[in-house]
């Protein structure tokens, strides 16, 4: 027996995470069965449950489907240029060090066009929380090959299948110096939310990759069925292997997806290194930029 949902009732009841969203911008632009919304929900839940000061939390996105996340979060939100979310966020963080700065963007944005910024921010242990939604493809422009497209998978610019090796993102992040590295699929909503909560409380370059279905392009081009079928695939093929060696977490086409928290360590951030270094070298002469930001008048 099916129950009928009264649309008026739905409109009256507030969604538990609506205080974290710009409800005046809903409905969002994402396709039915797209995974990004689920990741947003987990992020909003993590913000809620950690009780961070939302007034001091910023979100920065680049361009693309996931690049639209900043536009829906009720935080200080920056929808920037393609690939440049991380350097923009770097300026934001260094300009006002007390901020919690999160970067929410896609695979093409953060490790395609923005790959150079990604590795250098990780190397510096810049105090940024990076959420990367990996749907294996350029979604917004119509399904072109991404640096994450698995070997043999089809894309609109690799119509006979992809012959380029993709990035192993947890390994890339870890080897460049990220201090927190995790991967989940958007089926793992509890574990993903827990990872977000952990990462919010950590400092340094924190990287969480979330595998998410793109049913409109990736699934269609590869005849993988609907978003439901992809979620079913995650259910059957995601292997949780905590502390796995990141060298072993490559993603092959329609093969196991190894998930878990792979790296969680403390190392001084860029700002901490800078402050300590200058204090050592310059003593009392060193004037660090105050946490609330630099030289404001009036």
């Amino acid at each position: 027996m099916s129950t009928t949902v009264d649309p008026n009732q739905v409109a009256v009841d507030e969604h538990p995470v609506s205080p974290f969203l710009r409800m005046d911008r809903i409905p969002h632009i994402w396709c039915p069965t797209c995974g990004i919304g689920t990741v947003v929900k987990c992020f909003a839940t993590a913000l809620d449950e950690t009780g961070v000061d939302l007034d001091k939390t910023s979100i920065v996105s680049g361009i693309g489907c996931t690049g639209r996340v900043a536009g829906y979060m009720k935080l200080d939100a920056f929808h920037t240029t393609h690939g440049r979310a991380i350097p923009f966020a770097t300026g934001l963080k260094l300009g006002r060090p007390e901020l919690l700065v999160t970067v929410f963007s896609g695979d093409g944005d953060l490790v395609g066009i923005g790959g150079n910024h990604f590795i250098h921010a990780a190397r510096r242990n810049m105090d940024l929380m990076i959420i990367l939604v990996n749907n294996f493809i350029y979604g917004m422009t119509g399904g072109q090959n991404a640096p994450t497209t698995p070997l043999k998978a089809r894309s609109s610019t690799m119509p006979f299948g992809n012959f380029e090796r993709p990035f192993n993102l947890p390994h890339l992040a870890a080897s460049c110096g990220a201090t927190y590295v995790a991967r989940w699929t958007c089926l793992h909503i509890r574990r993903l939310t827990k990872s977000f909560k952990e990462a919010i409380r950590r400092k340094g370059f924190r990287f969480i990759e979330v595998i998410a279905p793109c049913s409109t392009l990736y699934a269609r081009l590869n005849k993988l069925g609907t978003g439901f079928n992809l979620m079913q695939f995650y259910h059957d093929n995601a292997e949780i292997r905590p502390d796995a060696d990141t060298r072993d977490v490559d993603i092959e086409f329609q093969d196991n997806i190894i998930c878990g928290k792979f790296v969680d360590e403390e190392r001084p951030t860029f700002t901490e290194m800078m402050n300590e270094h200058y204090q050592q070298k310059l003593g009392d002469k060193y004037v660090p930029l105050p946490p609330e930001g630099g030289l404001l008048h009036e």
Binding site: T80, G91, L92, L99, G294, L295
Partner: peptide
């Protein structure tokens, strides 16, 4: 370091420009 400023040498000029735009949104002159 003696006057409360932060300098960062970025990985390229794309990043340098993006960083000063981001920083400026904290009210700092960049």
């Amino acid at each position: 370091p003696m006057i409360g400023g932060t300098f960062i040498q970025m990985e390229d000029e794309l990043a340098s420009m993006a960083a000063i735009v981001g920083a400026s949104w904290t009210g700092i002159k960049a």
